[in-house]
Design a protein around this nucleic acid. Structure first.
Length: 453
DNA sequence: GCATGATCATGC
DNA sequence: GCATGATCATGC
C-alpha cells in the first residue's frame, strides 16, 4: 500500500483529497514545510511543492512525458487567478492570471510526432487543476487556493480545435520557421514564450533551419483558462442523490446523513469556500440553503428525490445557547384564497404534513457558525392541531378585515403570521377590496429550538 | 416579475 | 433579548 491518504490509481480519489486544499494555503494544510518554502515568491515552484508536500507524491524520473499522477493518468496543474472587476459581466468572479503552460516544446521532437502520439496529449489529456488566488510578493506557501479543484478532460470539439492548433505549430517548425512562432497563430493551444526575455535568452535549435528559436511551451490561452474557471464554478457533483440502486436500497435518509457527516463541526465559512460559494454574495439570504444543496451534490435548488418525497429542506441557525436565531418562513398566502378554504385543503396543512430536512448550524462561544447536524422531522400531531387553531384565527382575521388579529408569537405556540413581501408596498387584496402587505405563516423560533433539542 | 428562502432592523 | 415589521439576493 502506498500509505497515501488517497488512491493514486483513482483520479476521483485524488481530486477528493485535493478538496482539502480549498480555502487554505499550503502552509495551512502541510505541517512541515521546509523553511525556505516560506520565503519563495516564485509562483512557478508552487506546483511542485503541492505535489511534494501536499500530495506527498514524487513520481520516478519522467523521461517519457507521463502525467504527474501516472497511475491515474492525470496531470496536476496549479494556476493563478485574479479577481474580475465587478463591472465585467461574467458569472465567475475570477479570471486567469496567465496562460496555462502544458509542456515544453522540443522543436526537434515535435517535427517527428503525430498529434495522437504527441507528448502534450499524452501528458495533458486529463488534468486536475488547482486555482490559487494570485497575490504579488506573497510567499508561495501562503497563497490561498480558491474554487473547487477541477478535473478537466477536453470536450471532443475542443480537442479537435487543439489538434488543428497543434498541427499549425508543427507545420511552422517543418517549414523552418520555429523562430517566427506566435501565440496568435492558433486558437486554443498556443506556443507561448518560456523564460524571461530580459536575461540572455537561451535559444533552441530547430530541425529545418539554422536560425535558433526562442524557447516555447504548449499552453492554453488565458481565454481558454477562463472557460475552465467557469467550469470549476459550475461543476455539479451529481444531479441526483441516489446514483444507483445500491444507494436506493440504503435509502434517502442514510444517503443524506452520509453526505453531511464529514462536515459536522466545520466552520461554515470554510464550507462556503470548499463548495465554491465564496465569491457569491455572502449576504444572499439563500446562502446556507445553497450550501446544503451543494453538500448534497447539486447546484440546483431542487433534488428530484426530495421533490418526489416532498421533503422540504430548511436551514436553522442556533445561537450558542441553543435557541433559534430566527423563525422559519413559508410561502406567502393569498388572503382571498385562504378565506375560502378549509383547513384540510389549505397550503399550510399540506406543508405541515410534509417531511422536513433541517440543516442545523450553531454559533460557538467564539461566534463562529458551525455545521452542527441534520435532522429529518415532521410535525407532531398535537402541534398540527395548534397550527390549525392559528390558521383558523388567521382566516377569521382576514374575513373580518382585522389583520391586527393575526396570530403572533406572543399568543400562538407553534406558528404565527408575519409580513413576507419585497417590502411594505408589496401587497395583496383582502376580501373587502383593501390591500395589505403580503403575509406568510412562520414557525415560531422558540418552537423550532424545542423541536431541534 | 415574482416566489423563495431567508436575514436584517428596530422598538419595546 | 425578543417580537414584530421590513427587506434582500437569487433563480426560474
Amino acid at each position: 500500500m502506498s500509505g497515501l491518504p488517497y488512491d493514486i490509481t483513482s483520479s476521483d480519489s485524488i481530486k477528493k483529497y485535493a478538496d482539502n486544499l480549498v480555502g487554505h494555503s499550503l502552509a495551512q494544510v502541510v505541517n512541515e514545510l521546509p523553511l525556505d518554502a516560506y520565503k519563495l515568491t516564485n509562483k512557478g515552484r508552487l506546483g511542485s511543492m503541492v505535489e511534494e508536500y501536499f500530495f506527498r507524491y514524487v513520481p520516478g524520473a519522467d523521461t517519457d512525458h507521463n502525467p504527474d499522477f501516472r497511475e491515474a493518468g492525470m496531470e496536476l496543474k496549479v494556476t493563478g487567478v485574479v479577481p474580475r472587476s465587478p463591472s465585467e459581466d461574467f458569472k465567475a468572479s475570477y479570471k486567469a492570471k496567465e496562460r496555462l503552460v502544458l509542456t515544453m516544446i522540443s522543436y526537434i521532437a515535435l517535427a517527428d510526432e503525430s498529434w495522437e502520439a504527441s507528448s502534450v496529449l499524452k501528458k495533458c489529456r486529463l488534468m486536475l487543476i488547482l486555482f490559487y488566488l494570485y497575490e504579488k510578493d506573497i510567499s508561495v506557501s501562503d497563497l490561498k487556493f480558491v474554487l473547487p479543484p477541477l478535473k478537466w478532460e477536453f470536450p471532443a470539439e475542443d480537442l479537435e480545435v487543439i489538434r488543428k492548433d497543434w498541427y499549425t505549430i508543427q507545420q511552422k517548425v517543418l517549414d523552418g520557421k520555429a523562430h517566427e512562432l506566435s501565440e496568435g497563430d492558433t486558437f486554443y493551444l498556443a506556443a507561448c514564450r518560456k523564460g524571461s526575455g530580459g536575461e540572455k535568452e537561451r535559444l533552441r535549435e530547430q530541425p529545418y533551419s539554422d536560425i535558433k528559436a526562442k524557447a516555447r511551451a504548449f499552453s492554453l490561452k488565458p481565454s481558454y483558462v477562463n472557460v475552465m474557471i467557469e467550469a470549476a464554478h459550475s461543476e455539479t457533483v451529481s444531479k441526483t442523490l441516489l446514483e444507483s440502486t445500491v444507494d436506493a436500497e440504503r435509502g434517502i435518509e442514510e444517503i443524506v446523513r452520509e453526505k453531511f457527516k464529514p462536515f459536522m463541526g466545520y466552520d461554515v465559512s470554510e464550507l462556503i469556500v470548499r463548495f465554491g460559494l465564496s465569491d457569491q454574495n455572502l449576504k444572499a439570504k439563500g446562502l446556507f440553503h445553497a450550501l446544503a444543496m451543494r453538500i448534497l451534490g447539486t447546484k440546483k435548488k431542487h433534488l428530484p428525490e426530495f421533490e418526489k418525497a416532498g421533503i422540504i429542506l430548511k436551514t436553522i441557525r442556533l445561537k450558542a445557547n441553543g435557541s433559534s436565531k430566527e423563525s422559519m418562513s413559508f410561502p406567502n398566502f393569498d388572503f382571498i384564497k385562504l378565506a375560502e378554504q378549509n383547513w384540510e385543503e389549505s397550503d399550510l396543512y399540506d406543508i405541515l404534513n410534509q417531511k422536513f430536512l433541517f440543516i442545523i448550524f450553531q454559533y460557538d462561544e467564539n461566534d463562529t457558525l458551525r455545521f452542527k447536524k441534520i435532522m429529518f422531522w415532521n410535525m407532531p400531531y398535537s402541534d398540527r392541531l395548534a397550527a390549525r387553531t392559528a390558521w383558523i384565527r388567521t382566516q377569521q382575521a382576514i374575513i373580518h378585515s382585522k389583520p391586527s388579529n393575526f396570530p403572533k408569537v406572543s399568543n400562538s405556540p407553534v406558528v404565527h403570521v408575519r409580513p413576507h413581501g419585497r417590502n411594505a408596498l408589496d401587497v395583496l387584496e383582502l376580501p373587502d377590496g383593501s390591500v395589505f402587505p403580503k403575509q406568510c405563516f412562520w414557525l415560531n423560533a422558540g418552537y423550532i429550538a424545542d423541536q431541534v433539542r
